[in-house]
Amino acid sequence: MRVLLLCVGRLKAGAERDLVARYLDRAKAGGRSLGLSGFDTIELSESSARRPDDRMVEEGSAILAAIPAGASVACLDPRGRSLSSEDFSARLGSARDGGTSASCFIIGGADGLAPAVRARADLLLAFGAATFPHQLVRVMLAEQIYRSTTILSGHPYHRA
Rank of each mutant, 00 (worst) to 15 (best):
M1I: 14
R2Q: 15
V3M: 11
L4H: 15
L4A: 15
L4Q: 13
L6W: 11
L6H: 09
L6Y: 11
C7P: 04
G9P: 00
G9N: 13
G9M: 10
R10Q: 11
R10H: 06
K12T: 08
A15K: 12
E16G: 12
D18E: 15
L19I: 01
V20E: 12
L24Y: 06
D25C: 03
D25L: 05
R26G: 15
A29S: 02
G30A: 05
L34E: 15
L36H: 05
F39G: 09
D40Q: 15
D40G: 03
T41I: 14
S45D: 10
S45Q: 13
S47H: 14
S48Y: 13
A49I: 08
P52T: 00
P52Y: 10
D53S: 15
D54W: 14
E58C: 15
E59N: 03
E59V: 03
G60A: 01
S61D: 06
A62E: 09
I63L: 14
A66P: 07
A66T: 02
I67G: 04
I67M: 00
I67A: 00
G70K: 04
A71E: 06
S72C: 01
V73P: 05
C75G: 09
C75T: 07
P78E: 12
R79N: 14
G80D: 03
G80W: 03
G80Q: 02
D87E: 15
D87N: 14
S89A: 15
A90E: 14
L92K: 00
G93V: 06
A95I: 00
D97M: 06
D97K: 00
G98V: 07
G99L: 02
T100L: 12
T100R: 06
S101Y: 07
S101T: 08
A102E: 06
C104H: 08
F105K: 05
G108R: 14
G109D: 12
A110L: 03
D111P: 09
G112S: 02
A114V: 11
A114W: 11
P115V: 01
P115M: 12
A116T: 13
A116C: 09
V117C: 04
R118C: 07
A119D: 05
A119H: 00
R120G: 01
R120V: 07
A121L: 02
D122T: 05
L123S: 01
L123F: 05
L125I: 10
L125W: 15
L125Q: 02
F127S: 13
G128V: 00
A129E: 09
T131L: 11
T131G: 12
P133W: 08
P133G: 03
Q135I: 01
M140Y: 09
A142Y: 07
Q144F: 10
I145R: 08
T149A: 06
I151F: 06
S153N: 08
S153A: 13
P156Q: 05
Y157V: 06
Y157M: 04
H158W: 00
R159A: 06
R159K: 12
R159G: 11
